[in-house]
Simulated scan of single mutants.
Amino acid sequence: MAGSGIPRWMWALADDFPFAQAPEGVSADFDHPSLVGYHSLTIGCSICIALAVLFAAARLYAKVRIIRKASIDDYFFWVSLPMLLTVLSLYIYLDNHGAYGYHAWEIKIRVLTKPILACTFLHQMFLPATTWLIKATLLFLILGAFKTIKWLRLMCCGGIITMFLFYAATFAIAVSSCRPRGGTDRVSFLAGMASRECAGTDSPIQKMSLGTAIFAVISDIYILILPLPAVRKLNIRKKKKLGVYIIFSSGALACFFSILSLGFRIKSFGTKDLTVDSIPNMVTNMVELTVGLIITCIASVSKLARLFIDNRFGGLFGGNTYPTASDEGQIQMKPRRKHFPGGLSELDSMKTFGTTVDTEINHSTSLEPLYTTPTRHSSVVSGSISNELYGEPS
């Protein structure tokens, strides 16, 4: 990048210089720069904000009105959500104030105002913290669901700690490389953001960006496959097990966007046109994080949808009763168990397909043992998950 690494005092005289040198044979048009991507960053981030808020609202309603029990992943979720919305909003601001969408050689240094520089620096601080919080929320969701399985509990804790250390190191490198130089005015921010350590083609930030993308793919795959062996051993009906598989396997969508983000980062590695070439990576990264946060809401939303269908269309689909055989061998329709708010763990954040440890209408309040297969994991996991999550008789 042109001017990368020059002394701080010279930036005060550099307003009329381009942000980057134009490629050979390309003439820069400062008066009418061409917009690239039609504000795709704004469009993508706006959709992510709408989806995140919608699913968060559904999760909040289900938690307050239906489940009435908080778990540790809830606390991480409600810290992650404002962090993600902040990062998305910063991207939208930068995209609409000339920081992105125009070729770097068609942007003069004067375009980089203090708000733009400050927002860019804040984004580099918020992004690692937000990424870790969302991944930790997913791992705490798994941890709460299968806390009786020792190896899975250790793997979740190990993943949370490993990811924290990695993203803490990422945060430290970003702050130390792009920090304001010599004060908090515009020139100080400019000297930091455009320094060789921050904006150079061989800067630590560029290398860290590629390393972060690789780690994101590995960590997303880790989170995706971690609970699958435990789900396989659940002693529950195939229909219910399929539902749990669907919830946890939805993380494959986050893995897909994570791999896309890695591909875009590899393609743009070492580029001098960061204001354009980095947009696809930014969009896919934001979609990946948003999908990760939405996954933690799927169970609550599914629970809410099921109760809505049972209340509105229960008579049409038989949602409030189930068939059972009497002592005489005749088929009778018995009322389903009602949800008992806050019933034990109820897979904690998963509160989904059909609920839990409750009593039958006008019957005894004792819990009926649904499954008796005495395996090491199925007896423990099915007792704490199956009976609580799937209170309906098979």
Rank of each mutant, 00 (worst) to 15 (best):
W9E: 14
D16R: 12
D16W: 05
H32T: 08
L35C: 05
I49G: 02
A58I: 12
R59C: 04
L60A: 11
R65C: 11
A70D: 15
P82W: 05
L85M: 08
Y102T: 06
Y102H: 12
A104S: 09
C119F: 10
L122I: 11
Q124F: 10
M125E: 10
F146M: 04
F166S: 02
A172F: 15
A172Q: 14
S177V: 00
P180E: 00
V187Y: 06
A191Y: 02
A199D: 02
G200M: 04
S209C: 05
G211S: 02
G211I: 00
A213P: 02
I214E: 03
I214S: 04
K233E: 06
G251Y: 00
A252C: 07
R265Q: 14
R265V: 13
L274T: 10
M286C: 07
L289M: 15
G292E: 01
G318R: 03
Y322M: 06
G329Y: 05
Q330R: 07
M333L: 13
M333R: 10
H339G: 13
L344D: 09
K351M: 14
E360V: 12
E360Q: 09
S364C: 09
T365D: 15
E368V: 13
S379F: 13
V380W: 09
V381A: 10
N387F: 09
E388D: 15
